[in-house]
Simulated assay, not measured.
Amino acid sequence: MLSIKQGDTFAFKAEMKNEDETPMTGIAYKLKSQIRDIKNTLYAELQITETDDIGTYIFKADAEITKSWPVTKLYCDIQYKDADVVSSSETIEIMVERDVTKDE
């Protein structure tokens, strides 16, 4: 489980590999990742950036976006598409906590 405070930048790194353990690259695969609650409400479409390490990506939501996330458990996965085959990663749980110190 990941955790974040409202209004903080949310980011995590993931190494994406094929079934044969070769790295997935942005050229061959279309990646998509969203943040939703248990009721399926969409809170964010994550920005996805490939790093210098082939097959490793940063998934990110800016602080301005997370400011409106509710204090609850949210969910995320990584969907990847190769031609007409669509697959998804395991579900990632994200605990959103109330921010105490605020930039007002």
Rank of each mutant, 00 (worst) to 15 (best):
T51E: 06
I94P: 01
E15P: 00
L46T: 04
I4D: 04
Q47L: 11
M24R: 11
S89M: 06
I38R: 12
Q34S: 09
T25H: 04
I78M: 08
Y29L: 11
K32V: 04
T56E: 14
T49S: 12
D62G: 10
V86D: 09
Y80P: 00
E104S: 07
K73N: 13
G7I: 07
Q6S: 14
E50A: 11
K17R: 14
E64L: 12
D37H: 04
K17Y: 01
I48N: 02
D77H: 10
T91S: 06
Q79V: 14
T9S: 12
S3F: 06
Y57K: 04
T72E: 15
K13E: 10
M16E: 09
R36S: 08
L2W: 07
F12S: 09
A14E: 10
D99M: 06
D8C: 10
I58A: 03
D8S: 15
P23S: 13
D84E: 14
V71P: 01
Y75I: 08
Y80N: 09
I58S: 04
R98T: 03
P70I: 11
A14D: 04
Q79G: 12
K17P: 00
I65S: 09
D52E: 15
V86R: 05
E50C: 08
S68I: 07
I4G: 07
W69Y: 05
T66I: 08
G26Q: 14
E19G: 08
L31V: 07
A83W: 01
D53H: 05
Q47T: 13
L46H: 01
K102E: 09
D99W: 00
E90I: 06
A28T: 12
Y57M: 05
C76A: 15
K81G: 01
I27A: 15
D52M: 09
S87G: 03
Y29A: 11
T91N: 07
T49I: 14
K32A: 14
K39V: 03
W69D: 03
S89W: 01
D84G: 11
L74F: 05
D20N: 13
E93H: 01
D77G: 12
S89V: 05
T41K: 15
M1F: 06
D82A: 14
T25W: 00
L46V: 05
S88R: 07
T49Q: 13
